[in-house]
Structure formats: structure tokens, C-alpha cells
Design a protein around this nucleic acid. Structure first.
Length: 497
RNA sequence: GGGCCGUUAGCUCAGCUGGUAGAGCAGGGGACUCUUAAUCCCAAGGUCACAGGUUCGAUCCCUGUACGGCCCA
């Protein structure tokens, strides 16, 4: 219950009390402030478009019904102007004593900013040239009890924008546009894959064993089964089971969960696309990735070339393709092919001025060097290919160098956006990789792959040669909307208490 | 992980290295029949993030904590 003196208090309590007393007055008049529907309404954008030719003082012959949120109000005594906004746009309502009786006009004036109403009447253009609905009738559709954000400045406080994203969407056109762009990119990706005969599948989020990426998992408990499950860190090992079963081309687009730090490019849950294509290798996947991202950029933004800070990222041009180790040597002066001992590599990194940390794990050092020396410079779409075996436990060895794998990562905007390889389908080699990982686990690498016997059994039944891909959808969304933080492109990002 | 910056009314922001805080919008009362960030008049609205410290006195100086932003790693 509210405190009796809420109306006397300052701040938000007073504003809420004011709206609640209006709500009570509306109910006292016998009006339902939360009716069930508003049939026959048209989108404001369509109404605007259809009536654009109207001249000043001219009216449409037929009445329209529009509905949305009141975003502005300009009183003028016996005339009231309001702005009504729905998803498609905004239109002015023009209510005057000439069309509504005094009581109805007062009821309309008494509505608050943010209230959701329906209005009916002919479309007209005012003397000042503003396309408007001349209100013959209106219906309160939802009474709001809290004030909306500032009508002119919008909502800027990032804490509030993320914690109460609905206010961000309500107040900031940019925010709505951004999430529509993101949705367009995702449906473009789906359409691309569907058109090429890929089957969209759904594999478990709750997995008895995690795998397919180097990350620490979330653990949860099933009460009835009385056992723990891991939230998936990747879909890889299940999608390969689908390939083994003969689905030949599969993809899954959904959330993965990684129990790691939060940063401008990491959210603990994030959206990942994984695709697997039988009888393809990583070069086929490179071509597919380029084409798919190009299509997504074009469909979501209208252009394959998008602004990125001060620069322009061109997904339309053919992407640069560089051998990983050579590119890294070129940029850092350190050749990881000659620094195969972790102490040696760490020293070389320190000598060259890079942060090496205290990790004793060679692949982590390599990854750290990549992150520091090369990744931030890869603004234009770039593919680095052929990665050391120890960084790639599920990738097939290259034919000419058994210590390297047919793996590539794609970068843009200084971020890794995709990871792909010719999948390892030799079950004995895969078993050997798990054994290597077991040693890494024992040596303290908590991101090493746990042994997965069930997956090995699946591989022993035979997997065709296969090209696989993982594409980070949130990072793609960042690139397509020119946002520097993943929190901007995830509707409800993870927050501290 | 480190550094820097921020947190003041519902929202957007001012506030002079110290004397108990101000605007616009929103909200309330009033005027107004073509406004559009409507305008005009009146009144109201504050745990200056939180906890300590210094001081006669702290929004302001110091320390710590929380949350957030940016940069570096």
C-alpha cells in the first residue's frame, strides 16, 4: 500500500500519486482504463503515406483509427494538440471543441505523457502544414502510472538504458532502429542458409558435458534427475553428431553461455551461429562466410559497406586472407613457429614489449600475442588461416604440416567475428587430442576440453569430411550498427547487482 | 587486473578547490480555438550514490565502498 501522504511527498512518489488519482477518477467515470483491444487500427506510417498529398485545411473523406503512445501535448484552451507515436511513426492529433464536447476534450487533456490511446477521425493538414488526425473520438487503451523519460533529451544514463531497456526503446529512436537492424541481419543469415539447403536444428542447451570451445561453463542442477548439467559453451559437438547422422548441412543459431569476464565484447550469454557442411573444407567455408556476411550487411543496412567509427568497413570487397603465423610474425616480430617452448615465447613477448602474464600455457600466450599485436589492427574484414594444432583441438591437420590445422578466424573492426575449420573426423586423432587436453587440464588449464567418450563413439561411426563455422552474431550486430560495446546490441545485457 | 573520469529533483544538466543547492523538461493550479521543444503567470519538488575522515562548517577537500563510462592490458 502507498503511504497516505504520498501526494505530499516530492519526487517520483508524487508523480505516481498524481497519475493514480487520475486513474481512480477515470474508473469513477465508468471508463475501463485497460480495455482488451482496439480493432481496425492502422499503422501511423501507412496513414501518413496515404495522406501525404493533402493540402493545408484539406481533409480525407474517410476516418482512420490510429493507436499509440502520447509523446507530446500542446494545450491551447479549447484546442489540444498531441503527438501519437507507434512503431511506424508519429502523427499529430488535433482535438478541438468543434469536434468533441467539453467533457471529452477535458478528459483528453487530462491524459498523461506516455498514456496509450486510440483515436479516430479524418486525416487533415493544419494551417501550419502538419498532417494530423482530427479527433472525433478517442479511447484510453492503457493508463501509465510512471512518467516517461525526457521527451526532448531522451534517456541517456547508460545504467538505466540497460537495466530498463524498454525506456531506451520508448525514448530513443536509435535504439529501436538498432534492434530492427539486428533482427534483419539475423533473418538475412537464416535466409542465406535456408536457401542453400541447410537444416536449422535445435540441440541441447543443458549438456551433460561441455565442449567445442575454450571456456569455463556455467553449471546447473536438475532436481528430479539429481544430476548437474552444463549450459552449453558451444553447439559444435552436437551439430557434428547431426552430420554423422546424415543431415549433411545443418546450422543452429542461438545462445551460448561462457562463465568469464564481462567486457565491451563479452556478455556471459551471447548469440552464436554454427554451421556444418559435409564434403566441404575450410576454403569453401571462407567463401560462404564472406558471401553470407555481405548479404546480411546489405539486407540489414542497405549497403555492404558500413561506417565504423571514423572509418568504413567494406564487407563487399574480397576479404584479405593471410596465413596466421606469418601475419603474426610480420606484425609482432615474433615467429611462433620457432618459439614452441612457452618460456621462450613468454620471454620473446616481454622483450618485444607485450604483456605475457604468468600463464604457463603456450596456446594462451599465442592467443594473447594475437590479441595485442594483430587483432586491433584488423579493421577491414580479414581472414587469418592455418593455426597451430595446440590451439585447435577439433580441427584437421594440414596435409603438408601435421603441427598446423586447417583452421581460420575472421576479423573485422578489430574483433574476432568468426572461427572455422575443416573438422577433425579421424576418431583416433580426436582421441589423441582429448588426451593432450587431459594433460592441459591436469596442468591447470581450466579452459581445456574435457574428455568426451560419447562424442568419440559418434566419430567412430564415421563423419564425412566437413567444413564448420562459428559466427558471433552480437559482434556482427556491433559492426552493422557501428556500436563499440556488446551491451548496446544486446537487449538486456548482464548486470551487476 | 591497472589508470582516468563520473554519480546533484522523475528525466537532461549547471553549481567558482569550503558557508546547507539551481535551470529546462515532466508533474500541480490558472490563462489561451492552428500548436509542434507551444507560450505566459503562480506554487511545489533534494538522504547532492553510500560509509567514514579533516574542518567551526563539506555537494565541494581526503580515504574507502558500490555502480557506471572511457582508455590501457
Amino acid at each position: 500500500m502507498r503511504t497516505p501522504n504520498a501526494a505530499d511527498a516530492g519526487g517520483i512518489d508524487r508523480l505516481i500519486a498524481e497519475r493514480r488519482s487520475k486513474l481512480a477518477a477515470i474508473r469513477a467515470r465508468g471508463v475501463d482504463p485497460f480495455p482488451t483491444a482496439y480493432p481496425g487500427r492502422e499503422e501511423i506510417g501507412a496513414v501518413r503515406e496515404a495522406n501525404e498529398p493533402l493540402a493545408a485545411d484539406e481533409s480525407s473523406e474517410e476516418a482512420v483509427r490510429v493507436a499509440g503512445r502520447i509523446t507530446g501535448r500542446r494545450g491551447q484552451g479549447k484546442v489540444v494538440f498531441m503527438d501519437l507515436a507507434d512503431r511506424s511513426g508519429k502523427i499529430q492529433l488535433w482535438a478541438s471543441i468543434d469536434r468533441l464536447d467539453e467533457e471529452r476534450l477535458a478528459a483528453l487533456s487530462d491524459l498523461d505523457l506516455g498514456d496509450i490511446i486510440g483515436a479516430e477521425g479524418p486525416v487533415t493538414r493544419t494551417r501550419r502544414g502538419e498532417l494530423s488526425v482530427a479527433v472525433d473520438d478517442f479511447t484510453l487503451l492503457s493508463k501509465t502510472l510512471r512518467p516517461p523519460p525526457d521527451k526532448h533529451h531522451g534517456l541517456k544514463d547508460p545504467e538505466l538504458r540497460y537495466a530498463r531497456r524498454y525506456l531506451d526503446l520508448m525514448a530513443n529512436d536509435d535504439a529501436r532502429t538498432l534492434f530492427i537492424t539486428r533482427a534483419k541481419a539475423i533473418s538475412a543469415v537464416r535466409r542465406y542458409l535456408d536457401d542453400r539447403g541447410f537444416v536449422e536444428v535445435e540441440t541441447p542447451v543443458l549438456q551433460p558435458l561441455y565442449g567445442g570451445a575454450a571456456a569455463r561453463p556455467f553449471v546447473t542442477h536438475h532436481n528430479t534427475l539429481d544430476r548437474n548439467f552444463y549450459l552449453r559453451i558451444a553447439t559444435e559437438l552436437y551439430l557434428k553428431r547431426c552430420i554423422i547422422g546424415g543431415l549433411e548441412r545443418v546450422y543452429e543459431l542461438g545462445k551460448d553461455f561462457r562463465n568469464e569476464g564481462v567486457s565491451f565484447k563479452h556478455n556471459p550469454e551471447f548469440t552464436m551461429l554454427e554451421t556444418y557442411e559435409a564434403y566441404a573444407d575450410y576454403r569453401d567455408v571462407m567463401d560462404m562466410l564472406e558471401e553470407m556476411v555481405r548479404a546480411a550487411a546489405a539486407e540489414a543496412t542497405g549497403s555492404a559497406s558500413v561506417p565504423w567509427g571514423e572509418e568504413e568497413i567494406d564487407f563487399g570487397a574480397r576479404w584479405k586472407r593471410l596465413p596466421f603465423a606469418e601475419a603474426l610474425t610480420e606484425e609482432s616480430g615474433i615467429d611462433i613457429r620457432e618459439r614452441t617452448d612457452e618460456d621462450d615465447l613468454r620471454q620473446a613477448m616481454r622483450d618485444a614489449g607485450y604483456e605475457a602474464g604468468d600463464t604457463t600455457i603456450w596456446p594462451k600466450l599465442v592467443d594473447s600475442l594475437l590479441t595485442q599485436a594483430l587483432e586491433p589492427r584488423l579493421i577491414q574484414p580479414t581472414i587469418l588461416y592455418d593455426y597451430p594444432l595446440s590451439l585447435s583441438p577439433f580441427a584437421k591437420r594440414t596435409p603438408d604440416d601435421p603441427e598446423m590445422t586447417e583452421r581460420f578466424e575472421a576479423f573485422a573492426g578489430g574483433m574476432e567475428i568468426a572461427n572455422a575449420f575443416t573438422e577433425l573426423n579421424d576418431p583416433d586423432d580426436q582421441r589423441a587430442r582429448f588426451e593432450m587436453a587431459a594433460q592441459e587440464l591436469a596442468a591447470g588449464d581450466d579452459e581445456a576440453q574435457p574428455h568426451d567418450e560419447d562424442f568419440l563413439i559418434a566419430l567412430e561411426h564415421g563423419m564425412p569430411p566437413t567444413g564448420g563455422l562459428g559466427l558471433g552474431i552480437d559482434r556482427l550486430a556491433m559492426l552493422l550498427t557501428n556500436r563499440a560495446s556488446i551491451r548496446e546490441v544486446v537487449l538486456f545485457p548482464a548486470r551487476r547487482d
